[in-house]
Design a protein around this nucleic acid. Sequence first.
DNA 1: GTCTATAGGTAGATAGAC
DNA 2: GTCTATCTACCTATAGAC
Lengths: 181, 181
Amino acid sequence: MQEIADRAGINKGLLHYYFRSKEALFKMIFREAFTRFSKILHTVLSEDRPLLEKIDRIVDEYTDLLCQNPALPGFIVNELHTNADQFVAEIMQLPERPDPSRLILQLHIEGQAGRIRAVDPFQTMLSILSLCAFPFIARPMLQRMVHIDQETYLELMRQRTHAVKDFIRTALLPGGQPSEL
Amino acid sequence: MQEIADRAGINKGLLHYYFRSKEALFKMIFREAFTRFSKILHTVLSEDRPLLEKIDRIVDEYTDLLCQNPALPGFIVNELHTNADQFVAEIMQLPERPDPSRLILQLHIEGQAGRIRAVDPFQTMLSILSLCAFPFIARPMLQRMVHIDQETYLELMRQRTHAVKDFIRTALLPGGQPSEL
DNA sequence: GTCTATAGGTAGATAGAC
DNA sequence: GTCTATCTACCTATAGAC
């Protein structure tokens, strides 16, 4: 609280005057960031698009979001490991929370129709999420190992979207060749 | 420290007598777990095997390790976001630390030879790691969303290894069909 | 609204008896 | 080695002057 007050150019007392408690302050900030995040994911997941196009959108938007909020994944993961129950309960209450069921359904349908390989929709969904999120969660480590600064790392992540989209497409398409959708 | 002492059936004083400080205790436990983890990864990464066989081994061993230490990823990520510099420095000092350079080289060579698609080796390496690690980092959330207990979730992760290996293979092979290596 | 000063409580660490 | 009691530091939160 002292450090926050210092950076804001005020004092601890005033911080409590505005936010009542440290926890209330944290929740307000965190919820605000997470809600923005959640809303955009909700939108792309709900869009009415062909499967592969939708996956491309997810990868692009997800990466964009995390590039703009590189510290967010750390907070989310921390909350997840200290307050998992409450955190999940709060997500469930959001009116515009990410709902993967539509994407899972599309994966199922396209698989049945033979337009993509017959993969397990849940595992595939999880794989897409993994490919997008993990590099940001592990950023503090990877960035230091490759000896680059944050901005360079984020640029590497933007380039990565092409590799990821290509990777997923190739893994899903029956022919195995990336197509132009 | 109080809770640890209680669970150990001793008192705080004795805990300090043995470990000197809370930080020293944490580091001892954490380093022990991480070193085991690091050692096994080092081994599979160093093995002299064909590329796809090696990737299968990585996926299997990584999953196995995390199934046996489901709490470890949480601690690692937390350390990563609070002590990144020191954490990375300590990893670098380990005599048997995971070294991805050999795998990256193999990806490059096989790509050049046309035996796999010409992918970016670093991004591919990162993708493999993502597919293995993320589901364990996000476990507290996913487990609650699917309403299953930890043991069921870990079983789901063991099944997942097949989906992941298949996913990677298909994404890498020029023909796009998973082969029997 | 904004500040200073301080109360209240918690937790890591130590002293000292046994 | 093991315990109890206590010290010390820190940090959240509040009281009260302006």
